[in-house]
């Protein structure tokens, strides 16, 4: 059975000019795999991630025919139960650690707080667990990092700390929203390897939201390509370069490439007809 099953997900925001649909009828499932969601800004990929955790604030609305975590309906859950799901069953890593960590709390205290909230463990056990988690994300000096404040950390360290914090409760699903786009390439590889290992060793399901097509093609197992709130195409990640939808092709061709120099880059021409297409299902 899949970990997550989503059918006909819609996210709507009322505006002065009527309703704006950020996500329009998206369906997909997630197993113990690395599922990539790619698209440009405004394509609804981040909104999809947030909607799963019901993090869309009113007056925004989340609707779906089905949104189930291992058979449990997420939409009808009380806010109290949802609190238990967030962080414990499904975690989320955001793009920028600067805005996701509490700036006036020591890092150790933040990780311990999360762990104790979800497990009720003793302080001592939580502390041991926090250190173990920091080591797992290749932080060399976890004792020192535990005592440090977020501003004392570099971007790469901050992002690894975020991942440690999100994984300390051993969630079944990790939603990573552009987790590496603020990082340098060398650190990026390290962060990806950590997530990769968790999927392989612990059977976690990973939703990897990114605008970077090459990265997703190489890192993920399966890819959903989103445009204007819909899935326009889905394919195996290693077949992404053979994608057929003109939008996906346009995105791929607009990338400059070291191995294939061109005088001019191809410019994506958007077709009105894409807006009328129905969303492709990413359920398996």
């Amino acid at each position: 059975m899949s970990l997550l099953d989503v059918e006909n997900l819609r996210v709507t925001f009322p505006t002065r000019r009527g309703e704006f649909e950020a996500v329009r009828g998206v369906s997909f499932s997630l197993g113990q795999e690395r599922l990539g969601i790619v698209g440009e800004s405004g394509s609804g990929k981040s909104m999809t991630g947030r909607a799963i955790l019901r993090l869309i604030r009113p007056p925004g609305r989340v609707e779906a025919d089905r949104m189930e975590l291992e058979g449990r309906d997420l939409l009808s859950m009380s806010e109290r139960d949802m609190q238990r799901v967030r962080g414990q069953q499904i975690s989320m890593v955001m793009q920028d650690p600067k805005f996701s960590l509490n700036p006036v709390m020591r890092i150790g205290a933040q990780i311990i707080e999360i762990y104790r909230f979800h497990t009720g463990a003793s302080k001592r056990a939580a502390r041991a667990k926090a250190i173990e988690m920091l080591e797992a994300v290749s932080i060399r000096d976890p004792e020192r990092v535990m005592r440090a404040y977020p501003h004392e950390m570099s971007g790469g360290m901050g992002q690894r700390i975020m991942i440690a914090m999100m994984l300390v409760t051993e969630p079944k699903i990790l939603i990573a929203d552009e987790p590496t786009s603020a990082l340098d390439v060398s650190v990026q590889t390290q962060v990806l390897q950590i997530m990769d290992k968790l999927v392989r060793e612990r059977g976690m399901g990973l939703i990897f939201i990114s605008h970077d097509l090459n990265l997703v093609a190489q890192f993920c197992d399966r890819v959903l390509i989103m445009y204007a709130g819909k899935i326009v195409e889905t394919c195996a990640a290693d077949k992404l370069h053979e994608a057929t939808h003109p939008y996906t092709r346009g995105l791929l061709n607009s990338l400059p490439r070291l191995d294939a120099p061109r005088e001019r880059l191809e410019v994506l021409v958007r077709d009105e007809a894409w807006l009328g297409e129905t969303s492709v299902s990413g359920r398996q």
Binding site: E40, S41, H211, L213, G250, L251, S254, L255, P256, E263, R264, L265, E266, V267, L268
Partner: peptide
């Protein structure tokens, strides 16, 4: 910028 927009801006700069 998004990749499709990046392509437009890079072409413009060239």
């Amino acid at each position: 910028l998004d990749v499709s927009v990046q392509a437009e801006v890079l072409n413009l700069l060239v």
